[in-house]
Design a protein around this nucleic acid. Structure first.
Lengths: 194, 194
DNA sequence: GTACTTCTGCACTGAAGAGTGCAATAACTC
DNA sequence: GAGTTATTGCACTCTTCAGTGCAGAAGTAC
């Protein structure tokens, strides 16, 4: 239910109001209860579904073509996609909601973390391993290199966006250009020399 | 009021309950209203004070002795202090609360971000500038180098901690050792060569 | 059409919880 | 002690809100 998403994202679990959600969905409150059984079930089912969407999003963003001829250019491409993802308002608000409800719904936050950022990290780690094998990068620990790549590229805006009002988020362009600088720093540290 | 802090941190603004806060503080609810005037004022005054504490915390964590003989060792020291800060439960919970309430209290989140992480970044940027002047590091943009340092050192645990149940946070030791690896990566990218 | 299921409107309950009024009490000041 | 101020207990109002019951309307199947 898209109406529920908006209300939960805006007001949190306790602050959201089932009457308003039903009204926004132009459905009777009774129907909401017939279908979902209660506020908590509505919340968890909604979030589970939304996490699945975020998972697809992450899969797209983190895809790395490891067989490309120009690994460095490929990394720049991933960086740009990650940069755009990280200031996507839908993602930012989902993250805020899950973080705010960690103590009430720890399982939801854990699922999200495993399936969305976790997927990005796994994909990147796999790419790091490939590039190391091909002699492009000098990587000991692919998982750690993936973290370094990801946080050089999007760490600062990722963190900042969580604390920033929706209408003052950085623009994708700003984040992209910082992300590309991040890639260069990553390559300075990890490029195979000699 | 320490009792209010615990309740707001655990339940969020809407979820916290003034009767319970008063009871926990062993004070009558009437006194709470006499002193603070209302739930919202209690919340904002509490958070403002807590942000000030976080600011001191950040100041300590990010202090860099720029005149030391061994800049690299100094950076490792800062990294360890930042690593400890980032998984400090008080800080993590404060961040979660502010993030969860961004849409309701954007000003509080903005103040926190400016005074705590912002202070860390400013301090680090200043240090980067010094080390660049002394020819230790090769830094174009001190602020950006500071971001890269900070997120290489603590980016991953900073993000992860937000989504992790309180009793499953990474231990300071784990974070410290990752932080030290992060410093080495930073130095590989930024160390002045030749 | 008829039978069956689903949805709706709406009134309702019950509980939680913010905030108030006030008289009694305690604590502090001198 | 007298006077002043802060604190308390408690009953109370008012609002919000999750969740229910039910009878009727609307849709679906055949």
């Amino acid at each position: 239910m898209a109406a529920a998403r908006e209300h939960f994202l805006a007001n949190g679990y306790v602050g959201a109001n089932v009457d308003e959600i039903a009204a926004a969905a132009r459905v009777s409150k009774r129907t909401v209860y017939n279908i979902y059984g209660g506020k908590e079930r509505l919340f968890t089912e909604l979030l589970t579904g939304t996490v699945a969407i975020a998972e697809h999003f992450s899969r797209d963003a983190a895809t790395v073509l490891t067989e490309t001829h120009d690994a460095e250019q490929e990394l720049r491409g991933v960086a740009v996609r990650l940069a755009r993802t990280v200031v996507d308002l839908r993602i930012v608000r989902l993250r805020r909601l899950l973080i705010g409800e960690v103590e009430r719904f720890p399982q939801l936050a854990a699922d999200y973390y495993k399936h969305a950022p976790g997927l990005v990290m796994d994909t990147l780690a796999e790419a790091m391993r490939h590039f190391a094998e091909r002699g492009v990068l000098d990587v000991d620990d692919p998982a750690l290199a993936a973290e370094h790549f990801a946080f050089l590229v999007m760490g600062a805006p990722l963190d900042r966006a969580l604390f920033t009002e929706n209408d003052q988020l950085p623009t994708p362009d700003e984040v992209e250009s910082k992300a590309l600088v991040g890639v260069e720093v990553f390559l300075r540290a990890y490029r195979r020399v000699g």
